[in-house]
Amino acid sequence: MNLRQAIFLLILVCAGCSKKEIDPESQAYSLPVPEHFPQPVFDTQNPMTREGIELGRMLFYDVRLSANNKVSCASCHEQALAFSDGVALSKAGVSGTPLLRHSPALINMAWANNGLFWDGGSTNLESQAFGPLTAHDEMAQNLFELIDELNAVPEYVTRFKTAFADEITTRNVVKALAQFQRTLISANSEYDQFKLKKAGGTLSDVELRGLELVQQKCQGCHSSELFTDNEYHNNGLDADFSNTEYEGVFLGRYRISYNLADLGKFRTPTLRNVALTAPYMHDGRLASLEDVVEHYANGIKNSGTLDERLPAGGMKLNKDEKEAIVAFLKTLTDYQFVVDPKFKQP
């Protein structure tokens, strides 16, 4: 090899190194499934990567996603509240107008494979994101302007190229958001320590009695270690579904299916971290866990689509039983989840 050939080879090697530094490949990410959880099932043509997840975390906390650059996803989904917002109907959106439904908590979203929103109006996390991004009373963003805003940030240009080998597009924005949200896994509560027979995993007699009652009376809908069946049920909040105002958001799953059997049916939320996610129900009408248990004890309203496992009028729980259920529900709080640095604003 002569000197000229050696210099040419050195240039090629250096150019290759430089290109790798500028345009590194993304690293595949394997979702860490808790040992007592079922395997998640989702097929969205959106394979998870470390770079995609980190990009999604940045976007989740970025107010550029809203029309007035004041509202982010985190405005209605606070980590300290298990990614809920602590109010019945949020006014945090661009318009300042109260929303018509309660902001749901974001917990174990990798297992949410049967529709999202309270009525299942979106298929998956990718499609769901377009709702709040563009809704007038939420982020009200013009998606073309969003792309221009993100392209004005060199770090975003680089991160999108690394995560997706592509430019910034709305499709890649929602894919990144979905990847981050699927990492929001909560499985380290006092109950989990008890279930897995780990050190410190003990429940009191009252909490054990509450667990027994929840298994008997609640796990028809709040099933498995996820504490949700990801289905839609009429839990007796209302008996009249004739209100068709506001695009029928009070009609439940019927709004999407147009099946009369779905009137008043709403998606079952998980009971995990439920002590942190008050108020409750699709419209936030119940302020406390005690109110929720009282509803099931004495407030269930009858209608043609009432879930067959629920007795009209209520389950007639006594005072001790209600207190035991609330005590157990509090053992589902995952204190590490709400401070985990992997989920915080970067």
Rank of each mutant, 00 (worst) to 15 (best):
A74T: 02
N124W: 09
S18N: 11
G200K: 04
K322Y: 13
T270V: 12
E231A: 15
R272K: 09
P104T: 05
L306Y: 15
I256K: 03
Q128G: 03
L133M: 03
F37G: 01
L237V: 00
L89K: 06
G131T: 08
A324P: 09
M48N: 05
K322D: 06
S75D: 00
S84P: 13
H222V: 09
D23Y: 15
N46R: 06
N318E: 04
E308F: 00
Q5Y: 10
Y258F: 12
E212S: 14
G121I: 08
S224D: 09
G313T: 14
E231P: 00
L55A: 04
V293Q: 04
F194G: 11
L31D: 01
F117N: 07
S103G: 05
L125W: 06
P154C: 12
T305Y: 07
N142Y: 11
T134G: 09
Y280T: 02
H102M: 07
A327P: 10
S223P: 05
D148K: 10
E245R: 11
G200H: 07
E155G: 09
D320W: 05
R272S: 05
C221I: 15
A324M: 11
E245P: 00
V249C: 01
V41N: 15
F60E: 06
T44W: 08
I147M: 13
N46C: 00
L289H: 14
D23F: 14
A165T: 13
N124Y: 06
N302V: 10
Q215C: 09
F164E: 10
D43T: 14
F227A: 11
L3R: 02
R182H: 06
C14H: 06
F83T: 13
E321W: 13
A28W: 12
E231S: 14
S103F: 05
D340W: 12
P38A: 03
L251D: 03
S90A: 12
E245M: 10
G120W: 07
P40H: 02
L9A: 06
F266N: 04
L99R: 11
A135N: 09
S30M: 12
D205T: 11
N68W: 09
F60A: 01
A82K: 06
R267Y: 11
Y296E: 01
A324R: 02
V71T: 02
L260K: 06
F83W: 14
A275F: 11
S26G: 12
K20D: 09
T44K: 08
S223M: 05
K301Q: 15
A15D: 08
Q5C: 05
A82P: 11
D283I: 12
E294N: 15
D283L: 00
D137M: 14
A129Y: 12
G131W: 10
N172L: 10
Q219T: 14
M315N: 13
E51W: 13
G313Q: 04
